[in-house]
């Protein structure tokens, strides 16, 4: 190409650039204008449009929890009884919905049995845990644990979360009820219980979430969030307290383990003037807080974590996170004006 040809073609391209009304801004709107939240190894771009649906057809109230199933689909649990379960693909496209019987739908856990996916739903209004197939057929329900002697009526039992071990044992947190952790076998028969309301090591104020931690396969354990106390507590599988991790200022919902890290939605900042002051919190494998998207950068003084709090009004009341196989995160929010989940794309 000689110089004349080059100039001529360049001028045509330039004309195209000028003719496209927002082209210059499209280029200037490149990576530089995408805001990035988070710290250190865990930073994200924010997509507020992911998964938005027509609320007349597929409404949500509170978006309580999310999981990714074995097919890679993103499963959302809401307490809207038109469609308690909403299933998306990773792009945010609606695939299917089901469920009209879960007014207090709160906790959602994936259970894999012999290559088949099942769900455990906790419903604090029905005072039950319900095991379903991935397409919504009820397998069994667990009623309130009268046999513990701690519960007078079913109304005392308001379960918030479940965790499942490799052998199928189920642990349930009664986070809106009497703060016990109930241990069942895979058939839903009660084996043990521990915890209760209080501020001692083995007790909880709002035992909101639980997960099974088998990052060390020789020594698996349970992680339970004591949300009002701003503490994550570790127990052995028999319910003996092992250790706790303070997260000052952070009302942490359930712990979600993905690879070596633990992720939390933080419902709100403890000492914020506004209630909708939540954010995301990420711990590494050493249980150190490494990133808080939407909040202050985590820092330690004399091995103590400094108070964390929201810095931007992005999240309202984050209630759960789901990390997909691309390391992207989906944030379900409670009491956020019936909004759909927010997607955070890892950068």
């Amino acid at each position: 190409m000689n110089r004349r040809k080059f100039l001529k073609q360049s001028s045509i391209i330039s004309l195209g650039l000028l003719a496209c009304p927002s082209l210059s801004s499209a280029f200037s709107l490149g990576a530089n204008n995408d805001v990035i939240i988070g710290h250190n190894s865990h930073k994200y771009k924010v997509d507020l449009t992911w998964g938005n649906l027509n609320p007349l057809h597929t409404p949500v109230n509170d978006c309580h929890e999310m999981i990714q199933d074995s097919k890679g689909r993103i499963v959302l649990l809401t307490n809207h009884t038109k469609n308690n379960v909403i299933i998306y693909d990773k792009s945010g496209k609606l695939l299917e919905t089901w469920g009209t019987d879960y007014p207090g739908a709160h906790g959602l856990t994936l259970v894999k049995e012999n290559g088949e996916d099942f769900l455990l739903i906790t419903d604090y209004e029905r005072h039950q845990i319900i095991k379903t197939t991935i397409d919504g057929k009820v397998v069994f329900t667990i009623e309130y644990p009268a046999e513990t002697g701690k519960y007078t009526t079913k109304d005392d039992f308001k379960p918030t979360e479940t965790a499942v071990t490799e052998n199928g044992d189920i642990y349930v947190t009664d986070g809106y009820g009497k703060q016990y952790i109930l241990h069942y076998n895979h058939k839903g028969e009660l084996l043990n219980f521990f915890g209760g309301s209080g501020t001692e090591d083995g007790q909880f104020l709002n035992a909101h979430g639980i997960c099974y931690d088998n990052r060390n396969p020789q020594n698996p354990s349970l992680l339970v969030s004591a949300r009002e106390l701003n503490v994550l507590k570790r127990f052995d599988l028999q319910g003996n307290f092992i250790e706790s991790f303070n997260v000052p200022g952070a009302l942490i919902c359930r712990p979600v383990i993905h690879k070596k890290d633990i992720y939390f939605a933080v419902l709100r900042s403890k000492s914020a003037i506004n209630s909708d002051s939540g954010f995301i919190l990420i711990m590494n494998e050493n249980n150190e807080v490494v990133s808080c998207p939407g909040a202050t950068s985590p820092s330690y003084q004399n091995n103590k974590l400094n108070e964390l709090y929201q810095t931007v009004r992005l999240f309202q009341h984050p209630h759960d996170v789901c990390i997909d196989d691309d390391e992207n995160m989906y944030v379900a929010q409670w009491n956020s004006g019936k909004t759909y989940p927010i997607k955070l794309t890892r950068v």
Partner: peptide
């Protein structure tokens, strides 16, 4: 092609939160 890439670029960009869209906390 430029127009097409313009549109594509714009779509990719606008799916992410941009500067100045969300408030700081007090």
């Amino acid at each position: 092609l430029v127009f097409s890439s313009c549109e594509k670029q714009q779509k990719e960009v606008t799916s992410f939160l941009q500067q100045g869209e969300i408030k700081l906390t007090n």
